[in-house]
Design a protein around this nucleic acid. Structure first.
Lengths: 187, 187
DNA sequence: GTCTATAGAAGGATAGAC
DNA sequence: GTCTATCCTTCTATAGAC
């Protein structure tokens, strides 16, 4: 019988690539670097990922999975829409405060590859569209007047939170709390 | 006799490079592309700019000049701090709404070259620091309680405005107006 | 023998720099 | 124009597990 394929080699490569891509940017990282970090041969990498674009798409897809896992976990303890919106922003604030934080992977990709319409760009655009829709749905559930304005404001705030410094994370959380619980008492 | 250097050749090259850098990103544009767009020889480019990093630094310095020209022009008609803050954000909103808008050049650079500490990175960091300080100064002039919180909120809002879609530009302007003129009547 | 893996050479394009 | 270097990708050669 033939030699069995190494299990988990795809994950090993993808994990190595993800770390490098996020820290240094995708354009700055060469395939040789990924291969060295993964400790595999070139053939194996190209067997799992036909091109660098596909590897980048897989990197973003994995990032989405991790983001969604964190988000659903954060939303687990809040039942009402206002609490869920606060938890949503709190989770992003926690992410932003992490030591190695280097921006949103999806927004970073679209900045690194502007105007492109390949597989990773679609993953990035889909993620941004879906997360904004999630905010819109929660705002709609708040049953307030002018939900569109509040949705836009929260999206603006989230975009600023992702882009900004960790020092402003708490300010964003406090602000959202104030916005979705207007009569919540002193801040 | 030797031929005299073409006057304005530096500006021609820098203008060509700036357009390409902003639209496609700096990493995506090669020096050959800049040379072709500028319609000059390679030697002339390297006479004016010793390296691509220097050309990128000049591109960002030019972008800063243009931003500051627009900003001072926008602030010209407002004397009070609140009006100036609104005008500041209105000017950014106008920029964001322009057809070819592709993000803030300085923030884009820092995303394309993370962790770098070269000449263009310094230009970018200086610009961000100074613009944030400008907001802080205007907020201080408002003479309100908790100026730091309002400053952070405005910076958050501005970051979100730069990062987001043009459709949200008006929302940002309205929000700032509400923030700095709390009793300004119906929106 | 057969399959998978690594390692390295080589293709072809393009990069920045002189 | 040229030089060197590096990019992504492919192909070849070899070693090891079944």
């Amino acid at each position: 019988m033939a030699r069995t394929a190494a299990p988990g080699s795809r994950e090993t490569i993808l994990t190595a690539a993800s770390g490098l891509f996020y820290v240094h940017g995708i354009r700055a990282v060469g395939m040789a670097q990924v291969i060295e970090a993964a400790g595999c041969g070139k053939n194996l990498l190209y067997k799992h990922f036909a091109s660098k674009a596909e590897l980048a798409a897989a990197y973003l897809a994995l990032a989405r999975q991790e983001r969604e896992r964190s988000t659903t976990e954060a939303l687990r303890w809040s039942a009402d829409p206002a609490g869920r919106l606060i938890a949503l922003v709190e989770e992003i604030a926690t992410t932003v405060r992490q030591p190695g934080y280097r921006g949103c992977a999806f927004r970073n990709y679209l900045t690194e590859f502007p105007g492109e319409d390949d597989a990773p760009a679609r993953v990035a655009h889909d993620y941004l569209r879906d997360t904004r829709r999630q905010i819109a749905d929660l705002v709609a559930a708040l049953d307030r007047a002018e939900p569109d304005v509040l949705t836009d404001r929260l999206c603006l705030l989230v975009d600023g939170l992702y882009a900004g410094r960790p020092e402003r994370a708490q300010v964003a959380v406090d602000w959202v709390t104030e916005l979705v619980r207007p009569a919540a008492g002193p801040r």
